[in-house]
Write a protein that binds this DNA or RNA. Sequence first.
DNA 1: GCTTGTCCTGACACTCAGTGCCAAAATCCC
DNA 2: GGGATTTTGGCACTGAGTGTCAGGACAAGC
Lengths: 193, 193
Amino acid sequence: MSLRERKQQLVRDAIWDVAIDLFARKGFDATTVDDIVEAAGVSRRSFFRYFSSKTDLMTQSGSGRYEAMVTEAILGSARGRAKGSTMGEVLRGAVLDVAGCVAAEPRTLKILEIAAKYPEARAAFGRAGDVHEAAAGAFRRRMGKKKDRVEASLLAGVMLAALRTVFEVWFENPRQDISVAVERVFAGLEGWI
Amino acid sequence: MSLRERKQQLVRDAIWDVAIDLFARKGFDATTVDDIVEAAGVSRRSFFRYFSSKTDLMTQSGSGRYEAMVTEAILGSARGRAKGSTMGEVLRGAVLDVAGCVAAEPRTLKILEIAAKYPEARAAFGRAGDVHEAAAGAFRRRMGKKKDRVEASLLAGVMLAALRTVFEVWFENPRQDISVAVERVFAGLEGWI
DNA sequence: GCTTGTCCTGACACTCAGTGCCAAAATCCC
DNA sequence: GGGATTTTGGCACTGAGTGTCAGGACAAGC
């Protein structure tokens, strides 16, 4: 690693640390890019060379890395998982891989704390969170008290996943009734539920 | 409905129609709010009274409506679904309700078309779409050609749902190993997969 | 029909995010 | 050390979104 690269990493880390600290203290929206660059001692223009946007500071390491991590985990080439595994096993292994990678980064916890504290910061991860929250709450109410929060959250996630897939299927042929797409998706869920 | 309310609805519809038309022709980013208000014949300030942001035009009807729709569908009070239904039945019914509601609005198709055509417009729905896309592609590759796209998309959705739930569980007690959270979530998935 | 209070609209000015451009400084390679 | 290349800072610009305020349109009462 050359001097230049180490220096860049240093600057990048310095910006990130300062920014996360400010977010935690003042909130995401209340912290301006000017606040960050002043505290970090870099120019405004340089900030945008290291991070493509303010939300990049929250979504960690810019665009594409999470996608790559997920893809890698599913394909699991590094682990040499048996070709004959069932999809359930693949799914479980992939979740474990990604969760492990994310949890291994100490920054993850700080980001989760900020996201828990400030709603605006949660928006950095997209509006999907709000819908998921609402659906999970509804499932919880529907189930009564006997079942726990985890299952409600999972059901909500599966529902949103099913909906997304339904729209995908339906959009290929929007003239047909959408219930046909629902049928097809639930045929795919067959055996899971 | 008073004259005032009808007038507001008229303005709102006019803005939306003009905006969607511009998005479809020029793209989401390339269309400025100034373009929209000029074409619609309202002031810039009034635009932001009707829509809280430019992306609101894509996510349809502002914040909260989709959440409400999902919640309503799960609780299913309007349908009077039997209390004793299994969660699988509830899930299916809720998906059908939401999909039906969405498909019934003619605007939905236009929005889907724009989202399909312009990547920037997809970003209005949050970054989650990109991750889902990547994961579904990975599952497709992993499964080989024998299974179809629908199942890959579903698997991707379930995986993201599981991950989100894992982080939720883990965040309550971040000192413990994240694999414990994964265990717990997959215990909830037990019987589904 | 006219007044009065309420709501809506347009206009202006402002903050902040993000980008293009160019000159100066730092780094790397020889 | 000297020259090519990369990085940086400064400046100006566009575009989104917000606060404020005066003026106009609406509903209700007389």
